[in-house]
């Protein structure tokens, strides 16, 4: 589903590469933790999958498509098939839960009847039934992240990228977030989650890819965060 072959990314005005000859394969339906200290290149990896950034060398394939051959015109279509969740939720403060989720479908031109059907389903899937008309500032951090996950998942993406989704959430609430991610993964969606939350990684027992200074130092199925932590 995601294929990196010898990918190097150096940002402008930086001498050290953010990703340094990274090769990795993520299969369809997998759940992968991307771990490593801050600045190790986790977010860069996710941005490359979205074609928000371009690699300096190497090949990136997503769903069998070579991203370097994907014209700018077609990038939005790639992104429609990839859901994203971030540490800072990125909700629209002047829209309620339902509208925030529906926005993702409206702006890709989905018909209203379709939106009215699928949005409540997804709101329920993330455990927010009965809160569809709350505004973001009437929700806890964990609930706001659930809204973000509903929005990321509402178009049934084949891949879900999560960049430190529990970074702003207390450990007890994080467990609920992980359950939702697991539920999404079980529908067949490939999940890649960047984190440096050792407890979560250890509790899930999923594949772990560890980055350090832009290099992969470990790739382990059913792994834990790491002996050093």
């Amino acid at each position: 589903m995601i294929h990196f072959d010898n990918v190097t990314k150096v940002y402008a005005n930086q001498n050290r590469p953010a990703l340094d000859h990274v090769s990795v394969d993520v299969d369809k339906g997998e759940f992968v933790f991307l771990v490593g200290p801050s600045g190790s290149g986790k977010s860069t990896f996710l941005r490359l999958v979205l074609k928000e950034e371009r690699p300096d060398s190497g090949v990136i394939q997503v769903a069998g498509k070579d991203l370097s051959r994907l014209s700018n015109f077609k990038v939005p279509h790639l992104r429609r098939r990839i859901g994203c969740v971030f540490q800072d939720f990125r909700l629209l403060p002047n829209k309620n839960v339902y509208e925030n989720v529906a926005f993702a479908l409206e702006v890709i031109g989905k018909p209203r009847r379709f939106i009215r059907k699928v949005v409540p389903e997804v709101v329920e899937l993330v455990g927010l039934e009965g809160k569809a008309h709350r505004m973001p500032d009437e929700l806890s951090g964990g609930e706001q992240q659930r809204v973000a996950m509903a929005r990321a998942f509402v178009n049934r993406p084949m891949i879900l990228l999560a960049d430190e989704p529990t970074g702003n959430i207390d450990p007890a609430t994080s467990i609920g977030i992980m359950k939702v991610l697991d539920r999404i993964n079980r529908t067949g969606t490939t999940v890649v989650m960047a984190t440096h939350d050792a407890a979560i990684v250890d509790s899930m027992r999923k594949r772990v890819v560890e980055l350090e200074d832009g290099k992969i130092v470990r790739d382990q199925s059913r792994g834990v965060y790491g002996q050093a932590y």
Partner: peptide, 17 residues
């Protein structure tokens, strides 16, 4: 900027943005 950021993220086409 918030709206357009999300629109880009969920794959709204450039014309739409």
């Amino acid at each position: 900027r918030r709206e357009t950021g999300i629109m880009r993220l969920v794959g709204a086409s450039n014309i739409y943005i």
